[in-house]
Amino acid sequence: MKIAIASGKGGTGKTTVSTNLASLLAESEDVVLTDLDVEEPNSGLFISGDKIHEEDKFKMIPKWKKDECILCGNCQKVCNFNAVMKLGKMIMVFPELCHGCYACSELCPTKSLPMIPKKMGELQHFKSGNLDFIESKLIIGEEQAVPLIKQTLDYVDENFPERIIKIFDAPPGTSCPVIEATKDADLILLVTEPTPFGLHDLILAIDTMRELKKDMGVIINRFGIGDTNVEKYCEENNIQIIAKIPNMRKIAEIYSDGNLLYPKISEVKVQLENIISFISEYQQENAL
C-alpha cells in the first residue's frame, strides 16, 4: 500500500508526520519510508540507520559530436525547450533545459547528437530494524525534480513487494513534482495548520488531489493555534480529519534537534495511533 504525505504549503509538518508515523509503524511491521522532496530532503535528519546502498541517478542529455554534423539545424527546430541551439558553426546543448525527450538525437540525420548520461542526483538507502528509508537528493543547479522523483519511485517498486506499507514524503505545493510524487499513491494524507495560510494552501492541495481522484484525509498540525476554519472547511466538504497534533513549544524544540516526537510526547503518539487505525481500516476496506 502506498501512502503519500503531502501539503499545499511547505513547513506544515509533512516530514514530522512521515518520519514519526513510519518509525512507530516499524515497531510492529515492515515499512518503507521514501523522501520524495528531492529539492530539500529532510526526513533523513530524523531517521538513523545503516546505509545499505547508494547510487548516482542520471538523466540523459544529447552531446554534440561535430565530425559528421552537417549543421542542418534540425535539432534546434525539434527541441521544444530551447535546449539545443545552432550558434554559428556550433551546436550548443543547455543541459539544465533539456527534458531528455531524445527528439534531437533520434531525428538527427547524421547521428551527431548521441544521448549521454548526466548526473542529476543521488539515491541512498538506509535500514534500521523493520524500517527501510530511501532518500534522493537533487544536485544544486539542477532544475527539474520530476525525473529524479520518477527514478526514486522506480527504485522502491523494484525493491519492495506490493503489500508492504510505503510512506512517501511528497514535495510541497501543487505543481509537477507533487503530481509525480502522488499519482501512484493509494491514499493521500494532507498535513496542514489551522491558520489562514494553512487553509488557503490546503484547499489548493485538496483540489489537486480531487483532480487526481485520490482518497484523502487531513492531519491538522499545531492544533490549537490559529482558528477553526480548517475544521469547518473539512466538515463542509466531507473530508475526514484523522488526527490533530497539538501546538506545543516543546514539539518545536524536540523537532529542532532532529529527534522523533512520539517517544517523548504521549499526545503525539495518540494522534499517530489515530492515523494508523485510519490506515488499517482503509487497507481492509480496499483490500490492499
Binding site: G10, T15, E39, E40, N42, L45, F46, L138, I140, E142, E143, Q144, A145, P171, P172, G173, S175, P177, A252, Y255, S256, D257, G258
Partner: peptide, 27 residues
Amino acid sequence: PGIGCPVVSSLSGASYVVLVTEPSVSG
C-alpha cells in the same frame, strides 16, 4: 521554496537575497 526552477526564476536578477531560516536541523 526549494532549489528547483521556480526558485531559480525568483532569484535571477536579484540585487539582494534575504534568507529566512529557523534554528532546527532541517532549517
